[in-house]
Design a protein around this nucleic acid. Structure first.
Lengths: 215, 215
DNA sequence: GGCCATGCTAAGCGCCCGCTCACCCTCGGC
DNA sequence: GCCGAGGGTGAGCGGGCGCTTAGCATGGCC
């Protein structure tokens, strides 16, 4: 479950896999710019400037501005699938696996908000082909979470009326964290992760009694 | 509680208050275009074209493209506050009021998805002054929902660990409906409203036993 | 040392953006 | 019949956009 290993700042995620050093700097610059202003409001000059390069340098490493978004989106979604798959495939009760999935997924959205925001909200700026590829990854996210909930229902741990709808609501809740989470706000990513894991367990009918105090 | 009176199509909401007829047509065209492509990817030529007018006509009724977004945002947020306030101030238990608030708020986001999408997701395309004005309206939404939850906790109806966090999660869940809801999908706005009201009641510790069948 | 591949820049092309301006209908009041 | 105001248009402005191209510095290899 590990605490949030990547905080804000440069959002130094697993961009390590992006190999020419300049290409990685450009990609990180693009993530920041897209997250701040949105894909369409970001100019290639802005991206290059943040990376400390001339506008033309961008086109040595990427064919178009859209390719940047595509690459960011794919890497981000792969990370999302990995997080959910790891939680889904670990040992434990459905209850434990669901809590793990939600808390780590939320922590990723809150801690790497810059990245998550681009990944989750700039999707329809992609062309049809790239979008289709990304949507396939999203369906995998869906499948992992639904799998856990189905397991819990089958094992009698959960009490769920509409598995498909509940799956969607759980994912929706986690994803929307990227929209509202504020680094300077009252919560840490870990706190939101814990809160949300509790809320989701309640949603699937696994209501643990509150230990006492309310706030 | 009323069923969804306004479905998709022209999204014929309460734009009735926009008075010169041409100004209203332009505003509705802008809502559709912003919802489809986003604010920055929409051109003034596109908006005018959808309204059946020349590009210049836009500037007779609105000073800038941003003023269009501002007007849309304000009207939409006023509607959102009104929906939540109506549910909050009706008679009934906190349980009934919260279910009412969530189901009607969700129905608005699903049924008038075009409008809701613009209202909820194009907010930071506004300038600082306009954004501040809209954020005040959002805080009112927050207050209404938190009020209901606080009432429920005080009355012993709800079992909530973190009132502020739960309020945020409830609103987040409802708002995100505008992102994923699809008119051609498997659910009607009413169905999503009912499902979400159930899920939210579970989140606040008001777990009613499932009437039997699951899925 | 000569050579070229690589990585980058300065300059700029062509396009389309938000927005403006000069002008034109239409229609109610007298 | 004439006038003026309000709602509309066609043409086009300045500028910034995504992207290209010609040329320059570097450094590894023979």
């Amino acid at each position: 479950m590990s605490t949030a290993e990547e905080t804000a700042g440069g959002d130094a995620q697993a961009w390590g896999e992006v190999t020419p050093d300049a290409a990685r700097r450009l990609l990180i610059a693009a993530v920041e710019a897209f997250a701040e202003r949105g894909y369409h409001a970001t100019t290639t000059r802005d991206i290059a400037g943040r990376a400390g390069m001339s506008p033309a340098a961008l086109y040595i490493h990427y064919k178009t501005k859209e390719e940047l978004l595509h690459r960011i989106s794919r890497i981000g979604h792969q990370k999302a699938v990995e997080i959910l798959r790891t939680a889904s495939r670990r040992e434990g009760t459905a209850r434990e696996r669901l809590a793990d999935a939600v808390s780590s997924f939320v922590r990723w959205h809150a801690g790497g908000r810059t990245t998550a925001r681009v990944v989750q909200y700039e999707l329809d700026s992609l062309g049809p082909d790239a979008r289709a590829e990304i949507l396939a990854l999203r369906r995998q996210c869906d499948d992992e979470v639904r799998g856990i909930i189905e397991d819990g229902v089958a094992a009698g741990e959960f009490d769920v009326l509409d598995v498909k709808g509940t799956t969607l609501a759980v994912l929706s809740l986690c994803i929307d964290v990227a929209r509202w989470f504020n680094v300077d706000g009252p919560w840490t990513p870990d706190e939101v992760g814990a809160l949300y894991a509790d809320l989701v367990l309640r949603m699937v009918g696994e209501k643990q009694p509150s230990p006492g105090g309310q706030r």
